[in-house]
């Protein structure tokens, strides 16, 4: 039920991507950003792009319709995400025992894995410290210390891919002037949620957040079949499509916060080569989280994208024409 609408969005997305690829050459010649939704509409869409450009900041709202030069990392990421979730699905339906369980708790070839935020809530709520749970949580923390924090979000989380397609739809609706604007919340909201739900689980003795956790709900729905609760995920998606772009991931998700905190000290980061950068800001338009690249690329504060909200999705790598951005390991040069 939930999957039907986002899948159709996904189909729309791929059409857009194909049409974008068709216009790559034209784009390079004209040096303009096309807002192309089909070769026939090319002229019309160019006009609207110009109209947008005059407005200045509004341009950012249609960024994904502009020419994404390559889709290398996006395709790698999507196939990784889909195959991880397919492994969960296959573990139950086809009894393939590689990755058993669901995203909140699983076994990779028999080794325990547990979602750190869920585990933290449970330890606070039940005051029981189970050794398997601690092992599972530590393993996940180590994995994401190596992979880079919110790597989980864009490479594993099934809600992310739906939200990504929802984002494309949101941008399309903005472009067509069906919705007027994207409503923003304070990006520190999620830290408040993180603390709030931890406190609530400590005081109520129950893992309250797990009832409304769209990541866990979606993951369980994929593996064991959907119940009525999936409507909550649909409602969230609709909220994101029509009101606030990617609101859950950007402003609210406490699961993301737990990986955000891990990701801050994780050495696997996006490297920004200042010498190659032509300051075109295309990476910022491609980036799914508006404040992630600002700290680095705008302010020049660091050679690496240091924001905890960076999901290592690689969209900026695809967008960069100068080759100034790359996956890299921080402090590696100092070690060697």
């Amino acid at each position: 039920m939930a999957a039907s609408s986002p899948e159709s969005e996904g189909a729309g997305m791929s059409e857009l991507l194909i049409s974008d690829n068709e216009t790559v050459e034209q784009d390079q010649v004209s040096g303009e950003n096309n807002v192309a939704s089909g070769t026939k509409k090319l002229k019309v869409s160019k006009k609207s792009a110009k109209a947008k450009k005059r407005k200045g900041p509004g341009l950012r709202d249609v960024s994904i319709l502009e020419n994404p030069h390559r889709n290398k990392w996006r395709l790698i990421r999507w196939s990784f995400l889909l195959s991880v979730n397919f492994l969960f699905f296959a573990s139950f339906y086809f009894d393939v025992q590689i990755l058993e369980g669901s995203l909140s708790g699983s076994r990779l070839l028999g080794f325990h894995l547990a979602d750190p935020f869920a585990a933290l809530q449970m330890m606070l709520a039940s005051q029981v410290f189970n050794i398997n749970l601690i092992i599972g949580t530590t393993t996940v923390i180590i994995i994401y210390l190596l992979l880079g924090g919110r790597f989980f979000c864009s490479w594993v989380c099934p809600y992310h891919i739906l939200a990504e397609w929802g984002e494309t739809l949101h941008k399309y609706l903005l472009h067509k002037r069906i919705i007027k604007r994207n409503h923003m919340f304070n990006d520190r909201f999620k830290y408040f949620f993180f603390a709030l739900f931890l406190l609530l689980s400590a005081f109520s003795g129950y893992t309250i957040f797990e009832v409304i956790n769209p990541v866990a709900i979606l993951s369980r729905s994929i593996v064991y079949g959907a119940g009525l609760i999936i409507l909550w995920v649909v409602a969230l998606l609709l909220f994101e499509i029509f009101y606030s772009r990617r609101a859950w991931c950007r402003y609210f998700c406490p699961v993301g916060v737990s990986y955000n905190l891990i990701g801050r000290i994780a050495p696997f980061k996006i490297h920004w080569n200042v010498k190659k950068c032509s300051n075109c800001k295309k990476c910022q338009r491609a980036c799914m989280v508006p404040w992630v690249l600002k700290e680095t690329v705008n302010m020049g504060a660091a050679d690496y994208v240091v924001s905890g909200d960076c999901t290592r999705c690689g969209l900026c790598l695809d967008a960069c024409e100068d080759g100034a951005l790359s996956y890299n390991i921080r402090y590696l040069d100092k070690l060697i």
């Binding site: 573990s91 139950f92 058993e100 369980g101 669901s102 909140s104 708790g105 699983s106 076994r107 547990a114 979602d115 869920a118 585990a119 449970m122 709520a125 039940s126 029981v128 189970n130 749970l133 689980s201 003795g205 129950y206 893992t207 797990e210 866990a216 369980r220 593996v223 064991y224």
Partner: peptide, 14 residues
């Protein structure tokens, strides 16, 4: 305690 300590992963079901 069960409600508080179940991670809702469904591995028992699997």
């Amino acid at each position: 305690t069960f409600l508080a300590s179940c991670i809702k992963c469904g591995q028992c079901l699997q």
